[in-house]
Simulated scan of single mutants.
Amino acid sequence: MQITVNNQSHSLPEGSTIDALLAQLQLTGKRLAVEMNGEIVPKSRHNTTPLSNGAVLEIVVAVGGG
């Protein structure tokens, strides 16, 4: 299936979850926010929220500094 993440096209197997996408993008364990089709998806639902063909996601990674 094809999805768009931060304006870039990505291919994933059918039935993939947000957690699977984050693993593919090497973002597992990072502090981030995920929005799918205009709605924030809480971190507690990343492993159970399936992605669908044509989904549009925005992922923002928190960066610390001083």
Rank of each mutant, 00 (worst) to 15 (best):
T17F: 00
S9V: 02
R45C: 05
S52D: 11
Q24A: 14
G65Y: 10
R45A: 13
L51I: 07
G29R: 02
I18N: 09
T28G: 08
P50C: 12
V34W: 08
G38V: 14
A62Q: 10
S52E: 15
S52H: 14
I40W: 03
G15Q: 09
S9K: 10
D19W: 07
H10C: 12
E35Y: 00
S44P: 15
V34D: 09
P42A: 00
N7A: 02
A20Q: 02
A62R: 13
T49E: 02
S9Y: 09
I3K: 12
P13I: 02
L57S: 02
I40V: 04
K30D: 10
V41D: 04
S44Q: 10
K43E: 10
G38N: 15
G15H: 11
T4F: 03
L57Q: 06
N6Y: 02
P50E: 06
R45T: 14
E14H: 04
G65M: 04
H10L: 11
A23N: 13
P13S: 04
L25A: 00
R45P: 00
L12F: 08
V5S: 05
M1Y: 06
T49C: 08
P13F: 05
T28E: 15
L27M: 09
L32F: 08
N53R: 09
G65E: 08
E14G: 09
L32N: 01
L12A: 05
G29F: 06
T4P: 13
R45W: 00
I3T: 07
N7L: 06
I3L: 05
T28W: 11
T49G: 00
H10M: 14
V60K: 10
A55Y: 07
V56G: 14
S9H: 01
S44N: 13
S44Y: 05
G64C: 03
T4A: 07
S52W: 10
T28R: 07
Q2L: 14
I59C: 00
I18P: 10
L22F: 00
R45I: 07
A62T: 04
D19K: 01
S44E: 14
T49R: 04
V41F: 03
G54H: 09
A23E: 14
N6G: 07
S9L: 06
G29M: 09
Q8N: 03
N37A: 11
G15A: 05
T17L: 08
T48R: 05
A55K: 00
V60D: 14
T4E: 15
V56F: 13
T4D: 09
Q24M: 04
P42T: 02
H46P: 06
L25C: 01
Q24W: 04
V61I: 15
S16H: 09
Q8T: 04
L21V: 07
T4N: 14
M36L: 07
G38C: 15
G15D: 15
T17Y: 05
L32R: 02
R45K: 15
S52Y: 10
S16R: 10
L32K: 03
L25W: 09
L21N: 13
G64H: 01
S52M: 14
P13Q: 02
S9P: 11
K43H: 04
V41H: 03
T17C: 00
N53I: 14
L12Q: 05
G65L: 03
H46L: 00
L22C: 06
A62N: 10
E39V: 11
T49V: 01
I18H: 02
N53Y: 06
L51Y: 05
N37F: 11
N6R: 08
H10Q: 09
K30P: 12
L21D: 07
